[in-house]
């Protein structure tokens, strides 16, 4: 069977995902409000810090630079909120995954297909408006064309990493009924170590080293390093992308292995 035919099988899941999303049209508005509020907290907090330094302040950021960083970080977070974690957790909890196992498709890929339109819709209907809103309120820096292209590529990789992280989070549903707690834990840890609340450059040495080593760095700090040109030459940029790609592959492999183990257990238990 050709790869195209195989990929086609997942198309209905993608359009279905978009369809169910559009049913709750107020969702976009609300996601936007949430994102704007989240961005405002960090932006205003850090702008208060940079209020006293006219040029480059702590970490080499200017006031406009840190604003751009935090806002785009929030937009990336919106792209990563693909709802894969709650849906997988819910389907595991309800036992609906058992139904999926008898279909000639791979459940993780189904979830991936279903989340792509969510990501696209969030970017278009939430990310862009939020950025526009803030660009009227606070000064921001414009990236160079090259950096913007690097950022776009890096963002795609970050979406992959986020998908795997959310899939793994959702799979904790096999272990506990309180996936709410797990999701909150994931959200806090990811937001912090991705550099969404505090740029990794502003963390003290050891903490920054930990953050740089974790996969979450590739979700926010990585793309933003490229967007703001905070890298050393081509090698530096490639290094960021390579680290992201490496983590994406590693997490995908980990998801696949754990998924197989979990469903194997499911078959033994009979759902």
């Amino acid at each position: 069977m050709s790869a195209v035919t195989r990929a086609r099988r997942y198309l209905p899941f993608a359009t279905g995902g978009l369809q169910s999303l559009l049913q709750y049209r107020s969702m976009f508005f609300v996601t936007g409000v949430t994102a704007a509020a989240g961005a405002a907290v960090t932006v205003f907090l850090w702008r208060a810090v940079y209020a006293g330094s006219p040029g480059a302040g702590p970490g080499g950021f200017t006031a406009a630079g840190i604003t751009t960083y935090l806002l785009v970080a929030q937009v990336l977070q919106v792209l990563h909120a693909n709802r894969v974690d709650d849906e997988v957790a819910a389907e595991v909890y309800r036992g609906d995954v058992a139904v999926m196992l008898v279909r000639p498709v791979s459940y993780p890929l189904v979830r991936f297909a279903a989340c792509l339109p969510v990501v696209a819709a969030n970017a278009l209907l939430v990310g862009v408006p939020v950025l526009l809103l803030f660009s009227f309120l606070v000064p921001m820096t414009a990236p160079t064309a090259g950096n913007a292209a690097l950022f776009a590529l890096s963002t795609l990789l970050s979406v992959l990493i986020a998908f795997c992280v959310n899939l793994l989070t959702g799979m904790t549903g096999f272990l506990t009924t309180n996936t709410w707690g797990v999701r909150m834990l994931k959200q806090s840890v990811v937001a912090f170590f991705a550099g969404q609340l505090v740029p990794i450059a502003l963390m003290p040495g050891p903490l920054a080293a930990v953050a740089m080593a974790l996969p979450f760095r590739g979700m926010v700090d990585g793309p933003l390093t490229l967007l703001l040109g905070r890298y050393e030459g081509v090698a530096g940029a490639l290094g960021v992308l390579a680290q992201q790609a490496g983590w994406a592959v590693a997490l995908a492999a980990l998801s696949a292995v754990l998924w197989r183990a979990a469903t194997g257990r499911l078959e033994v238990l009979g759902g």
Binding site: T176, N178, W180, G181, V182, S188, V189
Partner: peptide
């Protein structure tokens, strides 16, 4: 109990 520990732990982390 596990759920409780998870919830409380997640909260402390937050």
């Amino acid at each position: 109990r596990l759920d409780f520990v998870l919830g409380a732990g997640a909260f402390l982390v937050r």
